[in-house]
Simulated scan of single mutants.
Amino acid sequence: MRLALAAALGLALGLASPALAQTSAPRQPTISVMGTGEAELKPDFANLFVSVETEAPTVAQASAANSAATERVLARIQGLGIKKEDIQTANFQVFKIEPPMEKMSLSRDSKDALKFGATHQLLIKTRDLDGVGKLAGEILASGDMTFQSVSFGLDRQEEGGDKAREAAVRDAKRQADVYAAAAGVALGRLIEIRDGSAQPFEPQPEMRMRMAAAKSAQAIPLVPPATLRYTANVQLVWELAQKP
């Protein structure tokens, strides 16, 4: 019985040995390279953010006052040549304004010192990049709104990202060619592509300012960026082969 079992095991191992030999075959060598790419495109528009702020003793009064002030602001902005469809609400909030402690202590009724504020933030889109500074000056000349910030963008955001990805692939291929040549081998099949993120990047930080209303409209020295830069990363993996 034992001899028969040993013979059966030996036969099974003998039959399995070709399969074991196949699984232990040497692994195809590969090279993995991370590529980085950039693309620079001229901006198409500017977004200006302005706010309309009001205060009142009650929420209803603060909201009503803000609504009236916003109507005046919209009329003024459209009077500057901005189309109605290029103005939209970015944020609106009503909040309680806590009075200073010393005023609360002097007041017999804390409700008398309580106020509510309303802030309506508007986004203004303009394609006249050379006139952004003049538009900001006109806004500052109004006592109803406060100029907050300006940023620049592209109509086709994906175009910048795609061009950056193409540049990243070229960069990875260039690096792989250098490594392969230095090692005395050749690049084989491209077997893997791992997509990285493509991010827009402005060459200067978003411009922010909060100023008192000017007595007369004067252009603000805002210089639009010549280009907006996009960056992307990609990881490519090739098989390696012997040089022919």
Score class of each variant (00 low, 15 high):
Y230V: 04
Q242C: 01
M34Y: 07
A198D: 11
M207N: 00
R210T: 12
T30P: 03
I97K: 15
N47F: 08
S63V: 15
L9E: 08
A90C: 01
L190I: 06
S105Q: 11
I193F: 02
A19W: 12
T70P: 00
A180I: 00
R170H: 00
T36M: 13
A214S: 15
L114N: 06
E166M: 11
V50I: 11
P225I: 07
D109N: 14
P221H: 04
I191V: 13
A12M: 10
L187C: 02
A219Y: 05
R27P: 01
V178M: 14
E166Q: 11
L190N: 06
F201T: 00
R108K: 12
A75R: 10
D171P: 02
A167V: 00
A180S: 09
L3M: 14
E71K: 03
A186R: 05
P18R: 04
A39K: 00
S216Q: 11
F152L: 07
I124K: 01
S105V: 11
T89N: 06
L74I: 12
L11H: 04
T231E: 09
S142E: 12
A182I: 07
A62R: 15
V132M: 11
N233M: 06
G14D: 06
A136N: 07
N233L: 07
I139K: 05
L154E: 14
A168F: 04
V169W: 04
T231C: 03
G133W: 02
P224M: 10
D177C: 03
V50R: 02
I31R: 04
A75N: 14
L3Q: 14
S63R: 15
T36Q: 13
G160W: 09
M207L: 09
V237T: 14
L140Y: 03
Q242N: 10
M101H: 06
L228E: 15
E159Y: 10
F95V: 10
A21T: 07
V150K: 10
A6K: 07
Q28D: 07
A241E: 10
K125R: 15
G10A: 00
S17R: 12
A167C: 01
A62T: 13
Q93R: 08
Q88A: 12
L80K: 04
G161M: 06
L228I: 15
S110V: 13
T146P: 01
F201K: 05
A226K: 09
D155G: 09
D177L: 14
V50D: 02
F92M: 00
S63L: 13
G184E: 07
P26H: 00
S149L: 05
V234T: 13
G117S: 04
L3E: 15
A219L: 06
A118Q: 06
E206P: 04
D128R: 00
V150N: 10
F147M: 13
G184V: 06
M1H: 09
L13R: 00
L222Y: 14
L74K: 08
A241F: 00
R108C: 07
T146W: 04
Q157C: 01
V150A: 11
V94I: 13
E71N: 01
G161P: 01
G137W: 08
R27D: 01
K84S: 14
E40C: 09
A60Y: 04
L122M: 05
